[in-house]
Design a binder for these strands. Structure first.
Lengths: 120, 120
DNA sequence: TGAACACATGAACAGATGCTCATAAGTTGG
DNA sequence: CCAACTTATGAGCATCTGTTCATGTGTTCA
């Protein structure tokens, strides 16, 4: 009842301008986009969007070596995008941030649109 | 044919799953995120979000060499994210895709938010 | 205890990336 | 045409990145 998301009005562009002049915020944003800019990482994150998964499950999804998955998971962990918990021999990963799911959805929708100029 | 929004949730995740299995769409999405993952390119795109700008104007915003700006603009042009038109000696760039603006906004908002582990 | 399984990590390497320098190309006014 | 201005481009280079290989760590079960 206090703060609902109302994404309309011109106070938004005011806030936007503030964020754009904050280099730390901008850099932080680029880091998020960077996490999503790699094919393997994108597959990992989008797979986790469907629900938590072990490393070996992610390996099947991404079709790369277990080592490659682990390295990328480490990067995602370090950036706070995923969290890990042990379950016996396995380690279960899940998304740490709902924001990532939102970005994936938006990115996918836009990538799927025919408006894309593509090559001629 | 009027039952469009019965269960938007299910429909959405269905469509989402379809997109996620399409490697071309996924790759296309990663390319968009890649464009936003660099500090200079992010500055260019967010500056253009405020309105069209010439190369020299963008140079001031980004505080790097004119050559660096041009190189990045070429990349963004090749990926269809910006368009260019001549105006006398200058070349005016503008965003070719409003999707980019959406992503920038979402990314900035999320980057600016304090870490909130639990929600709902 | 030890073998098998699941995951993490360090080193190393090929390829990608983003910058600068130098210079070319396009435009306008003299 | 030429000079000044604006932008584009190619080469070179240092750095970053994502992968594989080999090995280390941690867990389960016989």
């Amino acid at each position: 009842m206090d703060r609902e998301k109302q994404h309309e009005g011109q106070q938004d562009s005011r806030r936007l301008a503030d964020l754009l002049t904050n280099d730390d915020v901008v850099y932080s944003a680029t880091q998020i986009f960077d996490a999503l800019s790699d094919f393997t990482r994108f597959q990992i994150l989008s797979a986790l969007m469907m629900g938590e998964k072990s490393v070996s499950e992610l390996q099947i999804v991404c079709n790369v070596s277990q080592s490659a998955i682990s390295h990328q998971l480490r990067l995602l962990r370090d950036r706070g995008l995923v969290t890990a918990r042990r379950d016996g021999q396995r380690v279960i990963y899940s998304l740490a941030d709902e924001h990532v799911a939102t970005l994936i959805c938006v990115g996918l929708e836009h990538a799927a649109e025919p408006e894309r100029p593509s090559e001629e």
